[in-house]
Design a protein around this nucleic acid. Structure first.
Lengths: 126, 126
DNA sequence: TCTATTGTCCTAGTTCACTAGAACAATCTG
DNA sequence: CAGATTGTTCTAGTGAACTAGGACAATAGA
């Protein structure tokens, strides 16, 4: 089961945070087709956001074809995202963890690491 | 000189995007103490956001002690962020680029890569 | 069938990001 | 000094995000 963590006051919309967390869990293989998302009321109780906000997040995921809402029973993962095959991800994760350890021992903070990745992904100096 | 790229419609506030881009440029060593940020009017002309929005971004950076606004002459980088020594960053960037190439040839999209990094940084399975 | 659970809708209202446009104030340059 | 450039302030308004609270509808399970 996925556990949502909504950071109010971070500036960006709660419904986007929820959506992103679902997508991310799908990419990492934590959520697979058929899995059930937390109940709207669950999320309300857990994260403190309003039911309409949760609904908005879920509706966007549904529009994107990623989940399917079934009244009375819950919201279920329907599609797939990314190439979340564990046999592909696992070795990559290991390699990344190694690099991260290196970066951290060189004194880099998490934000430095994110910045560096964004730079590399967007093609260097641009 | 830093070039801003504001993605309207991405959902999160323009002033946060501007602030983040300055912080990131500082982390990567593109902006160093004494460097001048683009003029408020420059950013307005370039990115299309309103002057007040740019001002809000700059004011937040100033409150954080990262920049200093001097009326009549511009806004200048004051503090430092991260450990942006090139002799430290360069080899790390190289190693990361290598890993990214590997991940991409394994079929991962950028979003997969971000998700994986977030997972690793937050300490694995959490 | 009855009941609990779930998603869904509705109305009303508040807060905040952002826009628009104008004016002022300090600094630099010639 | 004069003019251009820069940051700064102000007022007014729009739209979106979010809250609050209630009600309805479909499904699952006993």
């Amino acid at each position: 089961m996925v556990e949502f963590h909504v950071d109010r006051g971070s500036g960006f919309p709660a419904y986007l945070q929820l959506g992103q967390q679902v997508r991310e869990a799908m990419r990492l293989g934590w959520l697979q087709p058929g899995d059930r998302l937390p109940t709207v009321r669950d999320v309300v109780a857990t994260s403190g956001v309003n039911a309409n906000t949760v609904l908005k997040a879920y509706r966007e995921l549904e529009l994107a074809g990623l989940v399917e809402a079934r009244q009375g029973s819950g919201t279920f993962v329907k599609g797939t995202l990314g190439s979340a095959a564990p046999e592909v991800l696992d070795p990559l994760r290991e390699g990344l963890a190694k690099w991260v350890a290196e970066a951290r021992s060189a004194g880099l903070e998490d934000e430095d690491i994110y910045a560096l990745l964004r730079e590399v992904l967007s093609g260097g100096a641009q």
